[in-house]
Design a protein around this nucleic acid. Structure first.
Lengths: 247, 247
DNA sequence: GTAGTTTAATTGTCTATACAATTGGGCGTG
DNA sequence: CACGCCCAATTGTATAGACAATTAAACTAC
């Protein structure tokens, strides 16, 4: 029977398992425990911290999910090799982003056509040629200055309700976020010179530098939408921030 | 004769807590439990799955760290709003990336000066003016074509050994990754037209579109380095991929 | 020596219980 | 009604113990 400590120990500001996790994290980040170093087994730390093994285990779990350590039965726990760095790229709705910087937001639908996928479109979405797709072109405008040009392709077969949505007042991105859960997304970020259509709509000089974000979204393996966002130089930058420690 | 007891309850292929987590995940991803939906409390699931509360708790923990659910004491557990999307941006060493695409890699140091931080440099790194810094300019070359221009600033006070490194054969990024652990990094990704120096070194037309990646790295709150990488249009794109399910 | 077998170290999962912390909602008083 | 107090639901953390799975290393039989 787990009899509680008679001293009525109030839980301290920082829980025990986090304290352990931070100690280990500190040892790793300071370089005191280099990659490959073997971390004392749970039973040792159980003694050192005078706690149950589950508590140490929980500390280790959080470090595993943060990618700082790796564990193997019988072998022990080791500081992970800093193999591939990664960063969390925040992707927010453009409307929120524009409003957040104090500008007014306006959305303008340029075109909306319901049709059958041409070969390149079908390839991009992983559909067969002729499948129903919705094509949307629109402008996001911040304080009367064009902010981004959006060209979107929606897989109507997967999102039937999109065929009834006019998209005159809400952007495809905002509508989809609200109506369709997704399981996987991929972004391609690059730079490109504006073509004639883009420079015209964005009111910038032809061939001027633009940031291009192409995003494709899937739901349980089937493509939902594919979108290409073109931002004039200096209108936008993406920020990615990474902290190794999780939880 | 192996004295293994075959009648003993073998642990199934998939542990109990993962089974629970997957059921919930499936309900969320399929849309059956939309964002904001209240998930039954631990005690209910404890009954439904006939297991201990710790097991349900562990299932929930993994879903929390995957960002699928949010929990609040007394209120309960809810399907997370898909508002703050995020993606994992892979950041690899340029050398690896170039070699991976089958090109040859060459690194060329353009300049290296050890000096005292000017005001803008000090501001960027969060140092006081006059602190020792190392400035490096270098080219990354893929199959004899300039691939990226690197302009780097290193906080010598935080990384003293960098002052002795010539950086003639190894890039600042590769050296730092190997020698200095970091705790936080921030990326700024944007597009810009090449200036005279950049177009000259990268052998591209003046004012042509470039992808600019600015990265700043800290270690325990103190700046280690700040780097600006300029890629000619079409030479490079960043790929970010996101999968909500984490295990 | 070699091949197979056992052992032991270590992590992985689970149970049953206990108490703390958080906080919306209900209750009562002025 | 407004304010403050208490209650109960729910999650958060922790304990002590149990057994399974993994696998390097020690051991044993040939």
């Amino acid at each position: 029977m787990p009899r509680r400590n008679p001293a009525k120990k109030l839980t301290p500001a920082i829980p025990r398992y986090l304290e352990i996790a931070r100690d280990i994290e500190q040892a790793i980040l300071s370089g005191r425990w280099p990659p490959g170093h073997r971390i004392p087994p749970e039973t040792d730390l159980t003694k050192r911290y005078a706690c149950a093994r589950m508590t140490v285990s929980k500390a280790f779990s959080s470090l595993v999910s943060a990618g700082l350590i790796e564990r193997r039965r019988r072998l022990g726990t080791f500081v992970a090799m800093p193999s591939r760095q990664s960063a969390v790229l925040e992707v927010r709705d453009l409307k929120d982003e524009i409003l957040a910087r104090g500008s007014t937001y306006r959305y303008q639908l340029l075109s909306r056509t319901l049709g059958r996928a041409l070969t390149p479109e079908a390839t991009k979405l992983g559909l067969s040629k002729g499948a129903p797709v919705l094509r949307i072109k629109a402008l996001h405008i911040a304080s009367d200055t064009p902010f981004a040009l959006e060209e979107r392709l929606i897989n109507v077969g997967e999102v039937p309700r999109s065929a009834e949505e006019p998209f005159t007042d809400i952007s495809g991105g905002a509508w989809l976020i609200a109506h369709v859960p997704w399981t996987e997304a991929e972004h391609r970020i690059s730079a490109a010179a504006a073509n004639a259509f883009e420079s015209n709509k964005l009111q910038i000089a032809p061939r001027s530098a633009c940031l291009v974000v192409e995003r494709q979204t899937w739901r349980l393996g089937r493509a939902i939408t594919s979108v290409r966002l073109v931002f004039p130089e200096s209108m936008h930058h993406l920020v990615a921030r990474f902290t190794p420690r999780q939880n």
